[in-house]
């Protein structure tokens, strides 16, 4: 396992370099004058000259790339053109917000998706199986923004059970520590606030988690059905083990191998691409940060946002690969 982990970590080095090179190229290899493109046609000559200076555009590309890497190594993601603040300090809380939402959405998706898949496979062709699979089919084909708006309308506006947007009630903002508000409120020993923060998480988590849940349920069902037919399951039953052990010990662990891939991919998608949901629920996450950057032609923000999202993808891939090795002993060789 150690050798495998080391090998897997070493593979990441060229991947990370490649990523920075691509992200660097996005801005620095724009045809024409990058500073002029970035600032737009109405910019003054002075502003353009200033930007050229601060971007170091007059120097050779590899020198510029070297400077870029050196900055990154120090945790410096550059400065936002719009707010003139350090992107590193702006993006931190955004990442935390997105992570918190993604974690809750995926917990919802995984717990319901896997169990629905298991029961559907176990009771194949039962009414539960049929309704779960119809629900899953609707789930994967439902537009997320529509689901989000419906949720807001029913549960916030009409029933008034849950807050419709934001991470917390705006009247009484939290003193952030980790920027994971559930964790922060617990650290503050303020459990009333924990409840409130959790309530804010419900609607966006369900909106974001529905598609992954449906995909996970379908995948779990089909791999469970496949695994349940295998010879080793017959062996387990032949030695007198009960249904629970057969399903949750022997079948599930094998069925998880392909399901894990889906979970990893979906987590990556949520972390990187939840722009629409984050906008509808006024969730100050990374997706919205990049989206705002695009609106304001804030190239350093776009660049850094993409880099961070790509980095998150790489990390999730790493975690999935390590989990593979943990679940399946054959992977290590």
């Amino acid at each position: 396992m150690l050798a495998y982990t080391t090998r897997r970590l070493l593979i990441m080095i060229p991947v990370l370099f490649g990523m920075t090179l691509i992200v660097f190229s996005i801005v620095h290899l724009i045809p024409g004058d990058p500073a002029r493109v970035i600032l737009g046609e109405t910019a003054t000559e002075q502003a353009i000259a200033d930007l050229r200076e601060s971007m170091g555009i007059n120097r050779p590309y590899f020198v510029q790339y070297g400077i870029y890497l050196a900055d990154l190594a120090q945790g410096d993601l550059g400065t936002s053109l719009r707010t003139n603040k350090s992107i590193t300090s702006e993006i931190g809380p955004r990442i935390a917000a997105t992570f918190e939402l993604t974690i809750f959405a995926m917990i919802f998706a995984i717990i319901i998706g896997i169990n629905a898949g298991i029961i559907s496979a176990w009771r194949q062709n039962s009414w539960f199986d049929f309704s779960a699979m119809i629900f899953a089919l609707v789930g994967v084909s439902m537009p997320v923004f529509w689901l989000a708006l419906m949720e807001q309308w029913i549960f916030a506006q009409e029933l008034g059970w849950l807050p419709s947007s934001g991470r917390q009630s705006s009247l009484d903002p939290i003193e952030p520590i980790t920027y994971f508000f559930v964790l922060d409120s617990i650290l503050h020993m303020d459990f009333e606030r924990t409840i409130s923060v959790l309530k804010h998480l419900i609607l966006p988590s369900v909106a974001l988690g529905t598609i992954p849940m449906a995909i996970i349920a379908r995948m779990t069902r089909s791999t469970m059905l496949e695994v349940m037919k295998s010879d080793y399951i017959r062996t387990v039953r032949a030695k007198g083990s009960g249904q629970f052990l057969v399903i949750y010990k022997h079948a599930l662990r094998n069925a998880m191998i392909p399901v894990l891939t889906v979970i990893g991919l979906q987590t990556g998608v949520l972390l990187g691409g939840a722009i629409l949901t984050e906008t509808i629920f006024s969730w100050p996450g990374i997706g919205r940060y990049v989206y705002e950057g695009i609106n304001y032609r804030d190239y350093p923000v776009i660049q850094s946002g993409i880099l961070v999202i790509a980095f998150i993808f790489v990390i999730i891939n790493l975690i999935v690969d390590l989990l593979y090795a943990y679940i399946d002993p054959r992977v290590k060789y």
Binding site: Y232, R234, A238, G240, R253, N254, I327, D328, R330
Partner: peptide
């Protein structure tokens, strides 16, 4: 099963749980 009547199968390669 497994206690009073036990069974072995044709396919030794796939009859044990790989994980």
């Amino acid at each position: 099963r497994g206690n009073e009547i036990a069974m072995i199968f044709q396919e030794p390669m796939t009859s044990l749980n790989p994980v």
